[in-house]
Design a protein around this nucleic acid. Sequence first.
RNA 1: GUCCCCAUCGUCUAGCCCGGUCCAGGACACCGGCCUUUCACGCCGGCGACACGAGUUCAAAUCUCGUUGGGGACGCCA
Length: 508
Amino acid sequence: MLSLALRCSFFCKENTMTEVRVRFPPSPTGYLHIGGARTAIYNWLFARKHGGKLVLRIEDTDAERSTQESIQGILDGLEWLGVTWDEGPYFQSEYAAEHMAAAKRLLTDGNAYKCFCSKEELEAKREAAAAAKGDYRYDGVCRKLSPEQVQEKEAQGLPYVIRFKVPQEPGKVGFDDQVYGRVERAYEDIEDFVIVRSNGMPLYLLCNVVDDIRDRISHVIRGQDGLSNTPRQILLYRALGAPLPIFAHMPLTLDLNKAKISKRSHGEIVSVQFYREQGFLPWALANFLVLLGWSTSDDREIFSREELIEAFSFEGITRSNSIFNYRKDDPKFFTDPKAININAHYLRTLPIEEVGALVKVEFQKEGLWDAAYDGEKKQWFLKTLDMARERFHTLKDFASLGRAWFADDFAMDETALAKNVLKHPGLKEWLPMLAERFEALPELSHDETERVCREFAEELGVKVGILVNGARAVITGQVKGPSMFEVFAQIGKQRVVTRLKGATQYFE
RNA sequence: GUCCCCAUCGUCUAGCCCGGUCCAGGACACCGGCCUUUCACGCCGGCGACACGAGUUCAAAUCUCGUUGGGGACGCCA
């Protein structure tokens, strides 16, 4: 799709910055959302792959919208995902003096000028242009002001913003984006943009560049929505006499209506925290997110950390936006089915000890944790998880669907009750009778319980499945689960017998 | 409106740069089968796409142009 020469320009072009340094600069105006998380992961992968550094920088210059809570949320989210940074977090607000100094320099070097046009004036011009169906760009009236005129206006105490002087010549600015290829923008299409507000505060475009220069960022990896900012930022780098980083823009993640996902309009479904609460394994989410816009040429989709770091490159990144196919109000999937599928995959393939550690946290929250699970019941605990996890999708399932394994106050699934218990009235007598036969055994083993069940079924002249599934319902509250003979043995004689005898209650 | 970007199954995508091996491959989802005491896993099979139109060519998903559709950016937000 894109010429190879262009794609590998990072490796071929001489670069004054030998060290790979990338950054993730969230603005703390809300929780960490999956789009931001994906960008962070890409940066992290790139840094790890090239032995570089990931800098975390909190862009908190919008004091009104930034919150401490949000900062903490972002940090927690990254940490949970396993995205580790090497420097920071730095806070953009602490470098205000530097941003100002840069603005002053641009002013004295003649790369910027003071603009006294009021917001109202500009607004009027914008509206007039819109009414005439034309497009508006700052007309540069203040750029033409003589030094005397500027002095005069300043003497009058008129407020001013500082605008950058975009070259007024036929050329264009361009750069080789690592994902999108050559991107160019004619000077005439760029207006003299504001870099400092009338209250003296520098704007994002400038701050961001100044910070990236100071942090010696070699590769700017960010969302495609930053693509059209890039030409202006390059102008800033040039004027500031700094070397250019390499740019790589990622396609965006869209919602079902193909609109950019945002915290504001999508709520929890796009928040990393939500997945944490819903029982996602952190790496499963990361793995899924990475696949939204990146792939390898082979058919691999499941990657360990190491494998991903090894496999990752800009080459595998698509240029088209991808849709986050979440399904709200779907009884089976509460988010993108693929995300659930990947989570389920990790849930049943990860070393059981790892799953155990995560389930422990879940159980502690649910009041299901028993200290003995870390002690004498540890083997039993892990084996139970191992048996149960095969058909679970999230960590929460252990405490909900799997509750009967660990506690006596579990819920009876309605389908299980109707289909596997009430449908066969004979079970009202048979299950307690089965309990008696189990009681006669020294302990419940897979083979013994199977023998007993089959013999009993034969005596009764019914299919063993009726007995077994009826038992499953009253013992686990579920319509599905592992082989019941293993379940008998695992749940243990006492609970099994009690629950089988209690079957009569369902017939009243 | 202006500038820019994008366009393959419902979704994520491979293939496109270097045209034939692609009546387009994989994954998820969905449907069916096998397995089975259930469900799940696993395995087997099915459904399902090159946005449209021209052009170039012996040959186009791949190259060119146009159309349409979608997205992003156009702030004294970040």
